[in-house]
Design a protein around this nucleic acid. Structure first.
Ligand SMILES: [Zn+2]
Ligand SMILES: [Zn+2]
Length: 871
DNA sequence: AGCACGCCGACT
DNA sequence: GTCGGCGTGCTC
């Protein structure tokens, strides 16, 4: 922890600092006292002199960890001139009192003309924590996706490496009669301060049950009864563990015999020493973790301490990894003929420096090909980035890769703690141990220095696009740019490529490698449609299940095989409904019905988090007959358990996998056949390999097909193919049943007939006809404001201004399906940028016009969000 | 994101 | 009258 004390009566608050640990030396800042940290001491014993002609005065442009459009210029204290470097963090005072750790983005010697630059408080790092290539990459993302460097800093740098000060109020011994000077509220605060010694501003707000406390604290500051400290906590600590070794004087056998003589009366210590020697196994120079000695026998702990006191053993704290790499299992990988062919073809693409698209059907063994390519890249001493959808990280893939690549690999996961992320960050900066990073979208923002290969698996997946907050980047598209900067190769892989990627392949912009043969004789599943219209007419339907599907499930489980049932979550949500008047509980902040969560028995808004207990009576008509509707996985699980006695049903969705190991447990239960029917949402579509699945059922294809979005056909196709791929792995073909009211739909027909080409051909044609990507680029502009008329006015004005330059390319504004979120009304403008406009100029225009909107008085508090290439 | 400054309604 | 809530603008 670094701590500054601000002398309370000094007007310019950040002039004089005391380091608590080096007191009474007056220093500007001190890091020397921070244990185990990369921070270091900056002694600045005197006030800075104003610039003299003899000295070079340097300035740095700092990226602050805030969503601000610009960089801020700070002056470098002469003493730090040699320390500043691009990519290092600096502590700077921003605003009245806050201290942030910003990042040096630029160094120059131009004093700002319009204002007096503040000094940086300190240079934090000895070496840059962000590489030049990262900064270059950030620049590109900012330009392309219309966002700010600060937003990239926020998205990239692990929170442990981002420091911000906290304002701490401390009492001052103000002598007798303090109370007379204070108001009632101030007395309450003062008493609490005496008791607690120190309080954060938020604590005081809590105590007084009010929102703004700053004026009160300011008044107390003026009355000289409190002081203020700005504390910055160094949040990243290297984790250390105790290691035991033999002391210098007890390494030889003779010396050790002496030691045992000394211990004649201490049998426990003899035991401990014996155990140490045994674990050292003859290597008397080695150090062993204390935990391994006492793991079997806790009572040895005290003995070890005694041995240390006697000077026989040394104990030292050595840094250890929080996120441990695993040992490789040394298994060899053999590729099939088809896989080898694909591998060669991919390399041909790489030689032409082309992005390569590997179109491999489910089960064709893409992963083995990836592994081979990764191996070859690592051998050349280069790093590899392997991107997968977030959902696949929890599955079986990572274990498999870890077994193969051992310690060179790190998985980068959003579930890691901040310190774990920081550790991986530093490991990658260091670049000696970790060479391969497997992770979701945000893994691409890590500090790679020497990428040789970027793999984007399931390249069509929508989760590669970041939604909120900014930067709203598309990881697949950005990966291509990242690779270009590193001079690395790019491999996109998918069983169902995105229309855009397939288009690029067809146009020879990408090198295309098909791998349409399943690995190990496995046969493609047999897909069949179940006509729900007919089933309803013939009364062969129970709830969500047609008799055909029920029979198939029953047959499958009776044959000892397993079933996966897929329930599409998009557009579905369980809700509470009044059967008398049709009323549904709605969110008070958003225009949406609340989702019912059975496990907690509450109603929740997915947009703002608003919670409501299910009302006992209808709030519209007072009728008590309310019921749950909607086709969530819970209901399917429940119904199926009732309909089929032999079904042991498990459920995999967002709710059922909340717990720490819940996900692994469900997978384990399914693998061991404890469950024989698995009902799930999108989660069952990715990263799972099961051997016994005889049947996959898609409960309804209709919702996804009718989703109002230009990608709905593409998405439906990808989703259905992906779930279908879970069926029938080995020799036996699996069965896939798709229930629908719309058996004639061209896409469903194409799927049943295995006519993949038709899907891509027809969809590409539709995109051209209705002008959607890949035939244009889309920028989505969302305006939001508490007042409906204000947004409408603002959005219309913005659209009007854009139309002056872009004409009919500007569509809308229109209200989105959910017009109000978090009590703000939203309106959207869609801009379609075709090949005839200059993309860069058009985007710059959109950005400037959006910013200019704030200059109109009535619209100045309208928020505008730009989303480039929305998904 | 904070935090200051300024305006406006509720309570002394 | 004053305190505290809230909208608006600025931070190098
Ligand atoms: Zn009702
Ligand atoms: Zn809501």
């Amino acid at each position: 922890m670094i701590k500054w004390t601000v002398e309370p009566f000094n007007k310019p608050i950040f002039r004089y600092f005391h380091c608590h640990f080096h007191s009474p030396t007056k220093v500007k800042l001190c890091f020397g006292c921070v244990k185990n940290s990369v921070l270091k001491c900056v002694f600045v014993p005197k006030k800075y002199e104003l610039s003299s002609p003899m000295r070079e005065t340097r300035f740095v442009d700092v990226i602050l960890p805030l969503a601000l459009p610009k960089l801020y210029t700070y002056r470098v204290p002469f003493e730090c001139n040699d320390e500043v470097a691009i990519g290092k963090r600096v502590l700077v005072n921003f605003g009245a009192s806050k201290i942030y750790s910003g990042l040096i983005g630029k160094i120059h010697g131009n004093p700002p003309e319009a204002y007096q630059a503040k000094y940086i408080e300190a240079v934090i790092d000895e070496y840059p924590v962000v590489t030049d290539l990262q900064l270059k990459f950030w620049d590109w993302i900012c330009d392309y996706y219309l966002c700010y460097a600060g937003e990239l800093l926020l998205a990239s740098l692990p929170a442990s490496l981002r420091l911000a000060s906290e304002t701490i109020v401390v009492p001052i011994d103000a002598g007798i009669g303090v109370y007379d000077k204070l108001t009632d509220a101030e007395r309450v605060v003062f008493d609490a301060l005496i008791e607690n010694n120190r309080m954060a501003l938020a604590d005081i707000a809590d105590l007084l049950q009010r929102k703004s406390v700053y004026p009160l604290v300011k008044s107390m500051l003026e009355k000289q009864v409190v002081g203020i400290e700005e504390e910055v906590h160094d949040r990243y600590k290297v984790l250390t563990k105790p290691f035991v070794s033999l002391a210098e004087n007890f390494k030889s056998d003779a010396q050790l015999n002496e030691a045992f003589d000394l211990l004649k009366r201490a049998p426990k210590q003899q035991d401990a020493l014996m155990k140490v020697l045994q674990l050292l196994g003859g290597n008397h120079q080695a150090k062993i973790p204390k935990s391994t000695i006492i793991s079997a026998d806790d009572s040895l702990n005290a003995a070890i301490s005694s041995l240390q006191k006697r000077g026989i053993l040394n104990i030292e704290y050595i840094p250890v990894d929080r996120v441990k790499g695993n040992e490789a299992d040394g298994k060899v990988l053999n590729l099939s003929v088809a896989q080898n062919g694909a591998l060669e073809s991919i390399k041909e693409g790489f030689e032409q420096d082309k992005v390569t698209l590997l179109h491999g059907v489910t089960g064709s063994g893409k992963t083995e090909i990836y592994i081979r390519l990764i191996e070859e890249t690592l051998k050349k001493g280069k790093q590899v980035l392997y991107l997968v959808p977030e959902i696949a990280l929890t599955g079986q893939l990572t274990g498999r890769l870890e077994a193969y690549f051992g310690k060179q690999l790190r998985v980068y996961h959003s579930k890691f703690s901040n310190n774990e992320r920081a550790e991986i960050w530093y490991k990658l900066l260091d670049g000696t141990e970790v060479k391969l990073v497997v992770g979701a979208r945000s893994a691409m923002l890590m500090p790679f220095s020497n990428l040789g290969l970027v793999i984007v698996d399931e390249e069509h997946d929508g989760s590669y696009k970041q939604q909120n907050p900014a930067p709203r980047y598309q990881a697949r598209d950005s990966a291509i740019m990242l690779a270009k900067m590193h001079n690395a190769k790019v491999l996109l892989g998918s069983a169902t490529p995105a229309i855009e990627s397939y288009f690029n392949a067809k146009k020879s912009k990408f090198h295309y490698v098909p791998l349409l043969e399943r690995f190990g004789k496995a046969v493609l599943p047999n897909i069949e449609l179940v006509d729900l219209k007919k089933a309803t007419r013939d009364q062969q339907i129970q709830g969500e299940f047609s008799d055909r599907l029920l029979d198939a499930i029953s047959d499958t489980i009776n044959g000892g095989e397993q079933v996966i049932l897929f329930q599409n979550r998009r557009g579905f949500s369980p809700r509470w409904l009044c059967t008398t008047c049709g009323w549904c509980p709605e969110c008070k902040n958003c225009d949406i019905t609340l989702t019912y969560h059975k496990y907690k028995h509450n109603l929740r808004c997915h947009y703002c988090g608003y919670l409501l207990n299910p009302p006992p009576k209808c709030l519209a008509c007072g009728s008590p007959s309310l019921k749950m509707i909607g086709f969530g996985t819970e209901k399917i699980e429940e119904d199926l358990s009732m309909l089929l006695k032999d079904a042991r049903v498990g459920r995999m969705d967002y709710d059922s996998t909340r717990g720490k190991n819940a996900y692994q447990q469900i997978i384990h239960d399914f693998e061991t056949n404890k469950i024989n029917v698995l009902v799930g949402t999108q989660m069952v579509t990715k990263g799972l390999d099961f051997d016994r699945v005889g049947l996959v059922g898609i409960l309804s294809a209709d919702q996804m097909l009718s989703f109002p979005d230009f990608r709905s056909n593409e998405r439906s196709y990808q989703l259905m193919m992906q779930v279908a791929g879970r069926a029938g792995r080995r020799e036996k073909p699996g069965k896939v049943l798709i229930q629908t009211y719309n058996t004639e739909h061209w896409l469903l027909q194409a799927i049943v007939n295995g006519n993949q080409d038709l899907v891509y051909q027809k969809e590409t044609q539709d995109r051209r006809e209705f002008l959607y990507p890949p035939y244009c680029r889309i920028v989505n502009i969302t305006a939001s404001h508490i007042d409906k008329h204000t947004v409408e006015g603002a959005a219309k004005e913005l659209a009007k201004q854009l139309r002056v330059f872009l004409g009919a390319r500007v569509l809308g504004p229109e209200y989105p399906p959910i017009a109000r979120v978090r009590n703000k009304y939203r309106m959207e403008i869609l801009v379609k940028l075709d090949g005839k406009v200059d993309l860069v100029k058009a985007k710059a225009l959109i950005q400037s016009k959006s910013e200019e909107l704030k200059l109109i008085k009535a619209f100045k508090s309208v928020r505008v969000i730009l989303d480039v290439d929305p998904y």
